[in-house]
């Protein structure tokens, strides 16, 4: 079976400004990848590039064997990429249910009932408008909306950012459940430990380049390497593996 995602020699950024350099990635079906790194190293740009929000200067992106790097955003979504953006970007003038139904695409595991089962809080607030939701509810809705497209690959950009601890626990359980079910996903997360615990593989970015790649469990077990990778002044001593 073809890899869900195959990125090769990717060079991308915003307009003429290049952020990502020499990115090579491969993600097999039912695998989850953590993208780690300090602030401003290009994690969000990587997800945005996969979704089509940036300018690709070189390299290729293939999804299930099909080249997608020149496709517009809506066609990438229709190819099977579900995106949970950092800012959640809920439609404020639509209700929870409308936010979900508007994103319904394809037949598969994810129906509105399945999303309500995953996030019962959304079922309770189905008639509330997007701008009437708390941050946690918005995040549930953002994930639910991405799932409604029955994605082959789910991109999660800091889904736990800025949320109260009690909300984080609930969302973490839901994300663990999704990844446990075998959903292929890329997770960008500030808390390296949390991300590594949930994923199979990891890459660490620095200044737009991949400086480490390997098994999540391996990196989690090696706290010195992890600390070195995420501490700016110690980067120079670590060569990419």
């Amino acid at each position: 079976m073809a890899d869900v995602l195959h990125v090769s020699g990717l060079r991308a950024g915003y307009g003429p400004t290049v952020i990502l350099e020499d990115i090579d990635l491969t993600l097999a079906p039912r695998r989850a990848l953590a993208v780690l790194g300090r602030n401003g190293v290009g994690k969000t740009t990587l997800l945005a590039t996969l979704m089509g929000h940036t300018t690709v200067h070189a390299g290729s992106i293939a999804m299930l064997g099909q080249r997608i790097e020149t496709r517009p955003i809506y066609r990438r979504a229709r190819t099977g990429i579900g995106y949970v953006p950092q800012g959640r970007e809920i439609f404020p003038s639509l209700t929870v249910e409308e936010n979900l139904l508007i994103a319904e695409r394809g037949r598969g595991r994810w129906t509105i009932r399945a999303v309500y089962d995953l996030f019962p809080r959304l079922a309770e607030r189905r008639n509330s408008f997007g701008n009437q939701l708390s941050g946690g509810e918005q995040q549930m809705l953002s994930i639910g909306r991405a799932l409604m497209g029955n994605p082959t690959l789910l991109l999660l950009d800091e889904p736990l950012e800025g949320l109260a601890p009690v909300i984080v626990d609930g969302l973490l359980a839901a994300i663990r459940h999704l990844l446990g079910e075998g959903l292929t996903a890329i997770l960008v997360e500030q808390s390296a430990k949390r991300a590594l615990e949930m994923t199979h593989e990891a890459v660490v970015l620095n200044r737009g380049r991949i400086v480490w790649r390997g098994e999540s469990a391996k990196l989690l077990a090696n706290s010195d390497t992890l600390a070195a990778l995420l501490t700016p002044e110690r980067h120079a001593s670590l060569a990419p593996s």
Binding site: E89, A103, R145, A146, G149
Partner: peptide
């Protein structure tokens, strides 16, 4: 509300 996000959901 958000044209880009609408494109993002296909």
């Amino acid at each position: 509300d958000n044209r880009t996000r609408m494109e993002g959901i296909g």
